[in-house]
């Protein structure tokens, strides 16, 4: 057996694997440029057009195909994602901060938190709906669905921050205290700036996961739809290329988010470098 033959074979396989990962999305993107309203969600492309993108924004004359209810849904989804991001990042940072000291029962608490990302959305969603029913509480995206989103994203933020604190040198904080600075101010002036890249990652995780979440939302959000629920609603009916067009846009949005995150990280790294280089000269 020669190793280079195997390497070539595995390389070719990995290329195919990437086609398998990306192929459907590429096909979906191509079909989103199908002509409308008569063009369907399949090949061949009758004529290239941006009809379905205009349709999405209500810029086309009314047709038999109902527009996706995305405007309100987008606002709700973004609002929900921002709320979830803030709360789960705060919870994640504080819980991870507590885990820096050993304490009894830390194992139980660790698993309690991690459980939040393990338990499927259907189960917590159902449970929350039952609790809300029993207590006679109305379900809304900003109440019952929101708390479940945090249950889901808080563990991610927690694990990210745990990894960050593992590499954090506590003598930096002790140095600050010994200079007469209160623990609270030390956290703000020393700890937080140093863990900020981690906080940014935790925020990105929380926002993306929440923005995309639908199984918990399905049970716990009541009548008002979020974006994923609007897409989920199309599953049971005939799909038109407008959903594909929406898919392209939302994918671009995710990439833009990822790009912003990467740019912010790069900026903070480069700033540290620039200070150094400037002084070197």
């Amino acid at each position: 057996m020669n190793a280079s033959g195997i390497k070539t074979g595995l390389g070719a396989y990995t290329a195919l694997f990437l086609v398998f990962l990306y192929g459907p999305l590429v096909v979906l993107a191509i079909l989103s440029f199908q002509t409308g309203p008569e063009g369907g969600p399949q090949f061949p492309i009758i004529e290239w057009s941006t009809y379905w993108y205009k349709h999405l924004f209500g810029l086309t004359p009314p047709s038999r195909i109902a527009p996706l209810p995305i405007e309100q849904a987008l606002v709700r989804s973004l609002g929900l994602a921002v709320m979830t991001m803030i709360v789960s990042t705060v919870l994640g940072v504080t819980a991870a901060q507590a885990f820096r000291r050993k304490f009894r029962g830390s194992g139980v608490v660790f698993y309690l938190i991690v459980l939040g990302m393990m338990v499927p959305g259907v189960l917590v969603g159902l449970g929350m709906a039952l609790v809300a029913n029993t207590l006679g509480i109305d379900r809304h995206w900003w109440s019952t669905a929101f708390v479940l989103h945090v249950v889901y994203t808080f563990p991610f933020a927690f694990l990210v921050m745990l990894a960050i604190f593992n590499r954090f040198d506590p003598s930096m904080e002790e140095a600050s205290w010994s200079l007469g600075v209160t623990p609270a101010r030390t956290f703000r002036k020393v700890t937080f700036p140093l863990i900020f890249p981690g906080v940014l990652s935790a925020m990105l995780f929380a926002f993306t996961l929440s923005y995309d979440e639908f199984s918990r939302t399905l049970f716990a959000s009541g009548r008002d739809l979020t974006l994923p629920l609007a897409i989920y609603g199309t599953f049971s009916v005939e799909v038109h290329p407008n959903v594909f067009a929406f898919g392209v846009l939302t994918t671009l949005f995710s990439f833009a988010l990822l790009g912003t995150y990467a740019a912010l990280m790069m900026l903070s790294v480069r700033r540290a470098k620039r200070v150094a280089i400037q002084e070197e000269a």
Binding site: L25, L28, D212, F214, P228, V243, F244, T251, S254
Partner: peptide, 15 residues
């Protein structure tokens, strides 16, 4: 792909 919408990825298999 993990960062793109799960539902869109599912739906992409239809065409």
């Amino acid at each position: 792909p993990f960062w793109t919408s799960f539902l869109i990825r599912v739906l992409a298999w239809r065409p």
